[in-house]
Amino acid sequence: MPHIVILATGGTIAGASDARSQAGYNAGQISAEQLVAAAPGLEMIARISTEQVATIGSQDMNETVWFTLAARIDALLARDDVDGVLVTHGTDTLEETALFLDLVVSGEKPVVLVGAMRPATALSADGPLNLLEAVLVATAPQARNRGTLVVLNDMIHGAMDVTKSSTMEVQTFRSPNFGPAGHVTPNGVVFFRRAARRPVTYILPPAPPLPRVSIIYAHAGMDDGEIRGAVAAGAKGIVLAGVGDGNAAKAAIAALSEAVAAGIVVVRASRTGSGPVMRNIEVPDDALGFVASDFYGPAKARVLLQLLIANGITTPGAVQMAFGGPI
């Protein structure tokens, strides 16, 4: 049987109820072994091993855990007796961890992230079925060479586009720009597109932290205070979560231009949730030295920019190529 290793990090999927409210719960209370025991039928799909990497809610996910996951996944995938790795994770920052692993983990074997919107102790918890379906995906031959995948609520998503879209809905994860990569049916795993993993894998520093990159959220009445604060705090890069197609007030754009002159990499993304940010539409990127994020939202643009800076890729042209080229 295929051998799948589950690396548990906590999250709602491992949550337990709390008396503070009717729906209150604490993340990361259930062990990896308990998660497996709550999903009968796994033993018919694969031989399962478990490791507890962390016991946190994903609001507390951090680069130390990221580095640990990346190193452990690389080591596991290099073994002939391991066919895939599954990471249990909270939903709040799952998309960021998925992109990080997609960018730094090499190899063709499946890496799958899975979570849940309801804690393990809830009536009609969604974690057990999500876990079983994630193992089905991790053991599917057609899941190879697709990079990191995300599986929840019958759907399979790629790491680049997937995002959490609702605070409460079970069907919270969506891929607004490209659509889901596939789905899990009662008859098996179905992918909608051919496997086409991009070849770039970034090198991690020997230890965290990654370079500091700040996200600045644009809004009506915006001035330059947040941007100057990020510069003063030592940011090596700034991602603008801009209005519309990545725009911001004139004072903010002027401050971002000053940041570029000081050697800080500036990427314009959009707070809208879907659609590309393209060069030189409303903002003169060529003149100001800005980078347009293409289809990367602010949170994911931050992850990619951290890795680019860590790998010495800082010129606007080279950064723009990593974000999708001259768009």
Score class of each variant (00 low, 15 high):
P2Q: 03
V5A: 08
T12G: 14
A14V: 04
A16K: 14
S17E: 14
A19D: 15
S21P: 03
Q22E: 15
Y25H: 14
A27L: 07
Q29K: 15
Q34L: 09
V36N: 03
V36Y: 03
P40Q: 09
I48A: 13
S49V: 00
T50S: 13
E51R: 12
Q52A: 12
A54R: 00
G57E: 04
Q59T: 07
M61H: 00
T64W: 12
D74F: 00
L76N: 07
D81P: 10
D81Y: 01
V82W: 08
D83S: 11
G84V: 08
V85F: 08
V85L: 07
V85I: 05
T88S: 13
H89S: 00
D92T: 11
E96L: 05
E96K: 05
L99C: 04
V104Q: 07
G107K: 02
E108K: 08
E108L: 03
L113I: 07
A120I: 00
S124G: 02
A125H: 06
L131V: 13
E133K: 10
V135Y: 03
V135D: 06
V135T: 05
T139W: 06
A140K: 05
R146M: 11
L149A: 10
G158S: 09
M160D: 12
D161H: 09
V162S: 10
S166T: 02
P176V: 05
H183Q: 11
G188D: 07
V190F: 01
F192Q: 01
R193Q: 10
T201L: 11
T201V: 15
L204Q: 00
A207P: 02
P208Y: 09
L210F: 04
P211Y: 02
V213Q: 05
I216S: 02
Y217V: 10
A218I: 02
H219S: 13
H219E: 08
D223R: 01
G229H: 11
G229V: 03
A232F: 07
A233S: 15
K236I: 00
G237F: 09
V239E: 03
V239D: 03
G242C: 02
G246E: 10
A252V: 01
A259G: 10
G263R: 11
A269P: 04
A269F: 00
S270M: 04
T272F: 05
S274P: 02
P276L: 00
R279T: 13
V283K: 07
L288Q: 10
F290E: 13
V291A: 10
A292Q: 01
D294G: 08
F295C: 08
A299S: 15
L305H: 11
A310E: 14
G312Y: 03
P316K: 02
G317V: 05
Q320G: 14
F323K: 01
G325T: 01
